[in-house]
């Protein structure tokens, strides 16, 4: 075997990696039929933070001080103690146009964290589509943190036996609000209907309906959930022509409407094909049914056996062997 063959072989695995576009290519996952989620309308949010408080109460999270001088609950960003946060966007010029944005898990349709978790600690419910986390399975590698486009899962770095925390739509073990027919805490307490709960399909429909409204008109915004009999009338704002989460990375189950551009509000610009799909396509192209590795291994075994025999044979005559090496 000459060097050319060797190089060929050395890059065999990697070359297979580049041969994407074969039958294994996987597109985005489909939205589960009964997928639930939330619709956050930033133009309705008044920044009262009732959702932040409710979230802390329900999930048993401690308050988080930002500085010793401000000894009240004032997280600056999502953290392992703050699974839901209201942030304020201030436009660079003038006073008008500022907006609040609620950040929490987007419950991706094709979730990066679920795709990358080595031990299936991150799970997507096949029915509701809620992305949940099982700390008893989790090994704490934090790949989910790295692979989340929204930077949602948070690890408790300050604890000797920390765990990953994330919003599980108030349906985790011991809370189970969705299963009990209740609303997620943040949707239930929202006084203006800025954040409502519902089936993703209904919410998407509602979002499209709102976008079709004429700015300045009156519209009754639902309170709590999309099926709620209660509503509050308000003026229709100028919406951005963009339903965030409809298509981002294959879609999310938490949808957003806003009056400002989403990149200004700190939301990433994500291609429609999820990174999870790209990653899994590459991975499965290489390792589909372990065919490629098995083939490579077969070749390797053959050559290793042949060549090691050669070298063992050579050993019968060490002097000859060495004389070949020692010459410079």
């Amino acid at each position: 075997m000459d060097r050319r063959n060797f190089l060929k072989l050395a890059s065999a695995g990697a070359v297979i990696a580049t041969s994407s576009g074969n039958a294994q290519a996987r597109g985005n996952l489909e939205v589960p039929d009964e997928a639930v989620g939330m619709l956050f309308d930033a133009t309705r949010c008044i920044g009262c933070r009732a959702c932040v408080v409710a979230c802390k109460d329900i999930n048993g999270m401690p308050p988080e001080q930002s500085t010793p001088e401000e000894p009240w609950d004032l997280a600056m960003d999502l953290s392992a103690d703050t699974l839901n946060i209201i942030k304020a966007y201030e436009p660079p010029q003038g006073d008008d146009g500022f907006e609040f944005i609620k950040r929490n898990c987007m419950h991706c349709v094709d979730a990066g964290c679920v795709s990358v978790c080595p031990v299936t600690a991150m799970k997507k419910d096949p029915k509701t589509g809620i992305v949940s986390h099982d700390p008893d399975a989790c090994i704490g590698c934090r790949y989910c943190v790295a692979a989340c486009p929204y930077n949602i899962p948070k690890y408790e770095y300050d604890e000797a036996m920390g765990q990953i925390q994330k919003c599980q739509l108030c349906n985790q073990k011991g809370v189970e609000r969705i299963d009990n027919g209740e609303l997620p805490g943040c949707a239930e307490v929202c006084p203006t209907g800025a954040n409502i709960y519902g089936k993703r399909s209904d919410l998407l429909e509602e979002a499209k309906r709102r976008m079709a409204l004429k700015p300045g008109d009156k519209y009754v915004y639902k309170l709590g959930s999309i099926d709620s009999p209660y509503g509050q009338e308000g003026e229709v704002p100028n919406y951005q022509d963009h339903i965030y989460g409809e298509k981002e990375g294959g879609g999310t189950q938490v949808l957003m409407l806003a009056g400002n551009r989403f990149e200004d509000l700190g939301m990433p610009d994500i291609p429609e094909l999820s990174y999870a799909a790209v990653s899994e396509t590459v991975q499965h192209s290489i390792y589909s049914n372990f065919l490629a590795p098995a083939t490579v291994l077969g070749g390797l075994l053959y050559m290793a056996r042949r060549n090691i025999k050669g070298s063992q044979d050579e050993e019968q005559d060490p002097n000859q062997d060495k004389s070949g090496e020692d010459r410079s």
């Binding site: 201030e90 500022f98 308000g234």
Partner: peptide, 22 residues
């Protein structure tokens, strides 16, 4: 009993900005 439309001219400082540094 009707809830008011909250008119705020500038967000209070205590809200975290979009890009809080940490």
């Amino acid at each position: 009993h009707e809830k008011s439309e909250v008119t705020t001219h500038a967000p209070p400082d205590i809200f975290p900005p979009i890009n809080a540094q940490s």
